[in-house]
Structure formats: structure tokens, C-alpha cells
Simulated scan of single mutants.
Amino acid sequence: MFALSSENQFHLYSQPTDMRKSFDGLSGLVQNILGRNPCNGDVFIFINKRRDKVKLLHWQGAGFILYYKRLGKGTFELPRYNFSGGSIVLDYAKLVMIIDGLSIKNVRKRKRYQNNNIYP
């Protein structure tokens, strides 16, 4: 079951990743390179050099879940970011757009109405 939602925090690993890595190898990257706990419930996203494969590592309850998508044609479009950092945080909407192959270059978030008056 796909158990990801906007309640999760998503971290895109900034370096190309060897897609032969599985649970232990990817959780090792999270611990040793990013300095984070892979068992904290966050979702860690890894993309290969050709950008045609993506893996998502997520700890849920009693174990890891590994989501894997390989494209038959084309590449995943990534947001611009500084490659020197370990990872960048993505929101759920941007993750879904990347996975579904939608362009994220000209995406702008619109302002939404907020009622600052609190009525009893």
C-alpha cells in the first residue's frame, strides 16, 4: 500500500545514487552522509545519474518500505538546487509532480485567503 502523504517530510538526496543499493545501502547514506535517522518516518528520495530511476526509502512502523520507479523513456525533472548540500526538502505536491513526469520549472504557489480574524 502506498503510505505517503503530505504529512511526511521528503528529502531529495543531492548526489546521483547507485540504484543497486537497497535498504541497508540507502539507509547507510542517510545516516553517514546526511547525518539523519532513517527510522524517523521521513521519506528519502534517491535518483540515479541518468535520472531515469528513483527510489524512495521510508520507515513505517516495524520496517522499511522501498518504492522504486524506472522510466522506459525520458527522465525525471528535478528542481534546481545546490549540489554541495546533502539534501533538499520537497513538499508532497512537488514529489508527486516529479514522479508523474510533470514540469516543475514554472510552478508557482498561489496565495490563499487566510482569515486572520478569529470569531468566537
Rank of each mutant, 00 (worst) to 15 (best):
K49T: 00
R50W: 02
R51D: 03
R51C: 08
R51W: 10
D52C: 08
V54I: 15
K55Q: 08
L56T: 03
L56D: 02
L57Y: 07
L57H: 05
L57Q: 09
H58A: 02
H58D: 01
W59G: 01
G61A: 13
A62D: 13
F64G: 03
F64M: 04
I65Q: 12
L66G: 03
L66A: 03
Y67M: 03
Y67N: 03
Y68W: 11
Y68V: 00
Y68M: 04
Y68D: 02
Y68Q: 10
K69Q: 12
K69V: 01
K69L: 05
K69T: 03
K69G: 05
L71I: 02
L71E: 11
L71K: 15
G72I: 02
G72E: 15
K73D: 12
K73H: 14
G74A: 13
G74F: 13
T75I: 12
F76H: 04
F76V: 00
F76I: 01
F76E: 04
E77L: 12
E77V: 05
P79A: 07
P79L: 06
P79F: 07
P79S: 06
R80L: 08
Y81A: 04
Y81W: 08
Y81H: 15
Y81T: 01
Y81I: 00
N82K: 08
F83I: 03
F83V: 04
S84V: 03
S84E: 14
S84R: 14
G85L: 08
S87A: 13
S87N: 10
V89Q: 15
L90P: 02
D91N: 15
D91T: 01
Y92D: 02
Y92A: 02
A93V: 02
L95W: 13
V96D: 11
M97I: 00
M97K: 14
I98K: 13
I98E: 09
I99C: 11
D100V: 00
D100L: 06
D100H: 09
G101H: 09
G101M: 07
L102Q: 14
L102D: 10
L102C: 09
I104K: 11
K105T: 06
K105Y: 11
K105Q: 15
N106F: 10
N106K: 12
N106R: 10
V107G: 01
V107D: 06
V107M: 12
V107H: 14
R108L: 11
K109M: 05
K111D: 11
K111S: 11
R112A: 08
R112N: 08
R112W: 05
Y113P: 00
Q114Y: 13
N115W: 05
N116I: 04
N117Y: 14
I118Q: 15
P120A: 14
P120C: 08
